[in-house]
Amino acid sequence: MRHLLSAADLDRATAIEVLDAAAQMAATQAREIKKLPTLRGRTVVNLFFEDSTRTRISFETAAKRLSADVINFAAKGSSVSKGESLKDTAQTLQAMGADAVVIRHPASGAPHRLAHSGWVGTSVVNAGDGTHQHPTQALLDAYTIRRHLTGTTGNPDGVGNDLTGLRVAIVGDVLHSRVARSNVQLLHTLGAEVTLVSPPTLVPVGAEAWPCSISYHLDAVLADQQPDAIMMLRVQRERMGGDRTGATGFFPSPLEYTRSFGLDARRLRMLPDHAIVLHPGPMNRGLEISAEAADSPRAVILEQVANGVAVRMAVLYLLLAQERETLA
């Protein structure tokens, strides 16, 4: 593995390798001394052209726990606002000796461009590009699902397992969601059956070609499929326009969206007893997920955050631990 650009690039064996490494990383995070010397002397640049709190902090924590040096670069208040191009920014950072670039960019495909243009010789990790991909989020979701639904007493993290036979419902704003795209691909690779549930206006063109089924009725999916895991997507109103009443071109009012697609107490009770509730955050409480669902014991949302650090440590380890020779 040289770059991590898309969840579609991971085959089943590689995905399981990353998840297993993440399980060992998670074990080290339960220790009193959480820092490992593994990437001492390596430099990881967080290149964020789009606002992000949790992903950036998660990557920063992961790199620091592996003893790498971290340079944070936010586009606001930087030379990018003076008109510098992606190429020049990247080459500047390369000249400072970066070993890996973690990039988030509003344009779909920017990480791919950075990785394959020959501008820089570093590893590139996609931390979310436009409405395209967010592979580490999919990995941490898969890790969380695997741990909860395939773990046994002897093997609490489900090491070595895939997700064969598990049913996962991904609910909400699929159109604007890179999380949904990455998850559909990765969960399918790992053998899970994925159902997208969304209003027709928020289903992207071409989604019928994805390896998943699509439904417009959340209640029907909950009753018929009894999903083992349900993932609520954030309604990305900043990408929807809309007026002061909350109406947008995609749904008439927030209340109507909540009634049809929000996870509330009633729908929570329709889930099977072992089912877990995921949300990539940040949550719009009262819109796609009710406070009762978000705070219920089934919600693993905070655990997703903790697992995110372990998964990103695993990705950085697998990308960087052996890389010095190939670069030299």
């Binding site: 080290t28 631990a321 052996q322």
Partner: peptide, 21 residues
């Protein structure tokens, strides 16, 4: 006790799978 992440020769080998501690 898995020592993979403490090795000084990590970069000389293909990435090693991590063992359990």
């Amino acid at each position: 006790l898995d020592v993979t992440m403490y090795r000084d020769d990590l970069h000389k080998h293909p990435t090693r799978p991590l063992g359990a501690t």
